[in-house]
Write a protein that binds this DNA or RNA. Structure first.
Lengths: 130, 130
DNA sequence: TTCCTTGCAAATCGTTTGCATAATG
DNA sequence: CATTATGCAAACGATTTGCAAGGAA
């Protein structure tokens, strides 16, 4: 239980806090490796999981089979671009009202919901690429 | 492109239509195997993917690392029990209004959303188990 | 006879884990 | 010294894929 300091964990969290694009474990690994060459993927996974369990970071399971991590633990929604697969934050009013809608005809307790949006992101839509 | 008949595919779809609990590929395999002993897991996966691509069934990616399949392709929501992990259909009014909420401050096109609910299902809540 | 499907096994991918060693408190 | 953390490699679970053989049109 008692947590002991580790440079690798510090670097991992620091890196995550510097990014707002929700990197995958492997991207975290590739980057942190530049500061700590001998760090292992296993250590990255272990620390990401540990940090997520303690609520210091957020683990995003967006169904595409690869988890992403977010240092922003405040409640917010995400958007996934169907074209470039980027994941962006979505600042919007709470939609927790849908919980009441869901509860109306359900026999059981609904305590929360998972929601993400998709479409074409600003970059891809504006066609500044092609 | 042209699809040819196959008993395996027919049985897979038939089995899926007989269930409303959103079975995993492996569960489909275990069951269809009782009718077609030599069917392989690979064939089950291939057909589930094929049927999903053609829109004949729905593939549910609920983030837990194991896809589930649903023969009901009509738009509806799902509920996942935190206790028994069952997946249930949720009949409720459309909440597509959240798309407008999401669009308000977003630079890009939002074409859809993915939402599922979680909590304690009726069976687990009523405590008819313990 | 064409070419879609299958069975089987090997391959992939993301993630976890066992273990001996190193670092922290 | 008691524990927690690490690196490395092997293990895993779900899903995909290559290939030769089988079946539908």
């Amino acid at each position: 239980m008692a947590l002991k300091y580790s440079k690798q964990r510090e670097m991992i969290k620091e890196f995550l806090m510097s990014r707002h694009d929700h990197p995958t474990a492997d991207i975290v690994y590739q980057n942190v490796r530049q500061q700590i060459p001998h760090i292992s993927l296993g250590t990255v996974y272990r620390n990401l999981t540990l940090l997520a369990d303690r609520g210091e970071i957020q683990r995003l399971r967006l169904g595409d089979g690869t988890d992403r991590f977010d240092a922003d633990t405040s409640p917010h929604y995400h958007f996934i671009c169907n074209e470039c697969s980027c994941v962006q934050d979505l600042s919007m009013d709470s939609i927790d009202g849908i919980l009441d809608t869901a509860r109306q005809h359900f026999d059981g307790q609904i305590t929360g919901h998972m929601t993400y949006f998709y479409g074409i992101c600003g970059n891809c839509a504006h066609g500044t690429d092609s």
